[in-house]
Structure formats: C-alpha cells, structure tokens
C-alpha cells in the first residue's frame, strides 16, 4: 500500500466515527422532513420551512465538524503525537493533504446527501431545486475547510519557536501578520482584480410561477482569493513541517 493510501486509511480510522455520524444526520433528517408535509400548510410555506431548517442544520453540522477537526489537531499535539508525525519519513504536504482531502470528501458526501434530501422532498411540493445552487452552497461549505490552513500555519510557525521559548512572540507575529496579509490582499483585490472576474450568477429555485427576482448572485472573487492564499500558506506550511523540531 502506498504512503498516501496508508495516511488516508489512518484518517478514516480517526475521523470515520464523526463522518458516519454526519451521514446518519442526513438519513435521520430525510425521514424527519416528512413531518413538514404532515402539517398540510401551503406548499410555499412548507418549502420555506424545509429549506431554512435544512440550511441551518447543515451549517451547524459543518461548523461542528470543523471545530472537531481543530480540536483533533490540539489533542494530537497534547498527546505528543506531533513529534512522531514530524519525524515521519513522508513529506509534510502528504500528511496535510491526506487530512484535508479526507475532510473535503466528508463534507462533499454530507453536502450531496443534504442536496439529495432537499431535492427529493421539495420535488413533492413542485419546487425545483437546481443542482447549481447545491454546488454553490457546497463550495461555500468547503471554504470552511480552508480555515484549517491558516490555523495550522500559525501552529507550525509557533512549533518552530518552541525550543527557543519564543512561541508567544511567534504566535502574536503570526496572528498580526496573517491579518495584514488578508488586509493587503483585500486591498489589491478591490483595487485591481475585482473588475477582471466574472460575476457568478446563481440558478434560482422555482415554485410554479414564483421565482426570486433580482437575486444578486454570489461573489466569486472571494474564492479566487481563498484559493490563492491557501496555496501560498499550504506550501509554506509543508516546508515548515519538514524543518520543525519538536
């Protein structure tokens, strides 16, 4: 078995229970949604209740998963497993990409399940729930995984300064510096890049003759900025991983 396969298997052993829990939430929610239709309210009211409650639930579950991911890094660190991981012969980016890929896979499965549930039950009241809208919400959910990258970046930067006892200083500089990085890239983006990017129009759900009018669509430049910053921080992070001694 290749190193990457082994790492993915380890991630499955660690995150598998939580991921199964998330898929169970999807299954339970698809059964619970039946109850909205037992009320016998108007189709538009039922559709609104179904969409709003599903989005709220999905947001809560995704947030819980991201928190769990962050806590798991902290737990590994406390248990002294970082010294073992950092000394492993596999390169750092392989460890990191196995974990992030697994997290993206779990979130994709979850989003697909939630989208299937919504599309199935909304079809019962004659509401079309387009695939593109589900894809857009999924992309925003994956954006949450990107939050793990700067946190890990600061963590590894701090770890590089543990032997010299400059960890608090490194943490402060990392926090302030990342804030500055974000501010300068937002400045550059708003001054230069914004006009080059196409607006991202969303396909809107339709209920019979009703449709949302004048919905502005989602901004796309946030994704470009997110991807650029993530690639930058990820490469810095994997180099740090190679050099840090714990």
């Amino acid at each position: 078995m290749s190193a990457f396969g082994t790492l993915l298997w380890l991630e499955f052993r660690k995150q598998g229970t939580f991921a199964m829990g998330m898929l169970m939430v999807v299954a339970g929610w698809s059964l619970l949604l039946r109850q909205f239709f037992a009320w016998g309210a108007e189709p538009s009211i039922v559709a609104l209740a179904v969409v709003a409650s599903t989005l709220m639930l999905a947001g809560a579950v995704v947030t819980a998963y991201l928190l769990w991911l962050g806590l798991d890094f902290a737990r590994e660190y406390r248990n002294g497993r970082w010294a073992l991981l950092l000394g492993a012969p596999q390169p750092g980016w392989l460890h990191l990409s196995a974990r992030l890929l697994f997290a993206c896979g779990v979130l994709t499965l979850f989003a697909a399940g939630m989208w299937g549930t919504l599309a199935f039950w909304l079809g019962r009241v004659g509401l079309e729930w387009p695939l593109g809208l589900g894809l857009a919400l999924w992309a925003y959910g994956l954006g949450g995984v990107a939050l793990v990258v700067p946190v890990l970046f600061i963590g590894l930067l701090v770890a590089a300064y543990l032997p010299a006892r400059a960890d608090l200083l490194a943490f402060l500089v990392g926090l302030l510096g990342l804030g500055q990085l974000l501010e300068w890239s937002l400045r550059l983006f708003s001054a230069q890049f914004y006009r080059w990017l196409p607006p991202w129009g969303l396909p809107l759900p339709r209920l019979g003759e009703m449709a949302w009018e004048g919905f502005p669509g989602l901004p796309s430049e946030a994704f470009v900025l997110l991807v650029l910053l993530c690639v930058l921080l990820f490469s810095a992070m994997s180099r740090l991983w190679q050099e840090v001694e714990v």
Binding site: V173, L240, E243
Partner: peptide, 27 residues
C-alpha cells in the same frame, strides 16, 4: 520580535516567513 524570531529557530523557512510577516506588519 524580528531579532528574536530571526535568531530563535533552526528552520530557514520559519526565519524568512517571520521576517516577511514582521515587514507586512510594519508596512
């Protein structure tokens, strides 16, 4: 902070990264 972070690690990446972050903050 720049002095401490430049001299406080064996990792060249961390050294230059913290220098860059400090320059960003000063800017």
């Amino acid at each position: 902070a720049g002095y401490r972070l430049w001299t406080g690690t064996a990792s060249p990446t961390a050294r230059f990264l913290s220098l860059g972050l400090i320059l960003l903050i000063a800017m």
